[in-house]
Nucleic acid binder design. Structure first.
Lengths: 195, 195
DNA sequence: CCTCCTCTGTATACCGAGTATAGAGAGCCT
DNA sequence: AGGCTCTCTATACTCGGTATACAGAGGAGG
């Protein structure tokens, strides 16, 4: 739950409340990662349930609930920073999945997908580099990290798409692979289904 | 819903049922992306609700429900292949979030996070390149795409981590950074907030 | 035969991430 | 006063993901 941990990290700088946490979160990520307000409240409830956060009385306005981090919360946050991020299988990625699926179906469609995505990625890349150009290189470290991350992964995506396209080009001449789409298949195809 | 669309893509090859769909999915992704069975059934229910899939009578065993793609499902699948994948803000990434948060808190901890993650990423990279070495370069295109994607993004992650570390090294000497905690941004309310 | 065990297959409960929206209260303006 | 906007909290809902319950079929062995 990286959102919850991020809220904990913000709360470590002092007690706060829902909307303020949302704003702080978005400020720290330069507005690149907007955070839905509703998610803040549900996440706070979960953090409170787990004892990582406690509600403090807001004497002035009833409409504000101030939350503060607990000692257990500080401990949990420390653990989060210490433990490695990825342990299970790598996260599924929509575009990769799409390309895997479309390639088996029709290689021409795959080339279309690649070209569409490449255009989008290059455009994003230009946007990110523009943002970076406007940022002093001694600016906020977190913001620079985030920008660099976006740039590196988007660059990698472009190069990956190029490699996919050339792979298709290299193999397309030799291997036909897929039937030309027919409706009304399954009537007769039933025998092979195990029963 | 890329999982649902992937199931649709599999169903385009002919009717099938829950467990078989899980197995086909994992076979197409070379076992890199295991798919929980439960998710298959709930996703099938959603697809059926939306009319993209229909339950066919399972003649032999009652314990098997055979699903087939509908014309509407084929249309939806075509649309999925045609439409660009990413339109909203880029997906939040746990590691980037962690690094952004930890950097603001303590740069030494940030270096620790970077080094831990770098070790893990390099190890993954070795694993992926080993898998690639064992794959003939004219093998299944989808599998090669998937493998390349993992390699490209993991490489990018390593280079990103290196760049983060050198940024910290470059700026660490000059700039103190921890803000001395200022709540009270907000008009009148919490002059009572304990800090 | 009957029991136990395993394998296959389906289904549900639950959690977290994420979105949309309802609705209360305060301040302001005319 | 009425009405508007802004702030703030809260809930309902969807989807991705995991674990687990549950039912049936078939085999092994007493």
């Amino acid at each position: 739950m990286s959102v919850g941990m991020s809220l904990l990290a913000i709360l470590e700088d002092g007690p706060s409340y829902g909307l303020q946490l949302k704003n702080d979160f978005e400020q720290r990520t330069g507005g690149i990662w907007p955070l839905n307000v509703g998610q803040v409240y549900t996440t706070l409830q979960r953090l409170q349930r787990d004892g990582l956060v406690e509600a403090e009385s807001s004497n002035a306005a009833e409409s504000q609930k101030i939350y503060g981090i607990t000692d257990q919360g500080r401990q949990r946050l420390s653990d989060w920073f210490r433990e490695p991020a990825a342990d299970g299988p790598p996260a599924r990625e929509g575009l990769v999945l799409k390309l895997v699926m479309v390639t088996r179906r029709n290689r021409d469609d795959a080339v279309g997908v690649i070209q569409t995505e490449r255009r989008g990625a290059v455009q994003l890349l230009q946007e990110y580099t523009r943002l970076k150009r406007e940022t002093p290189s001694d600016g906020d470290l977190g913001w620079l990290f985030l920008l660099d991350s976006l740039i590196f992964t988007t660059e990698a995506r472009v190069r990956w798409l190029d490699s996919c396209e050339s792979r298709i080009a290299a193999s397309g001449d030799t291997a036909p692979q897929r039937r030309p789409v027919e409706p009304a298949t399954h009537a007769f195809e039933h025998e092979e289904v195990p029963s």
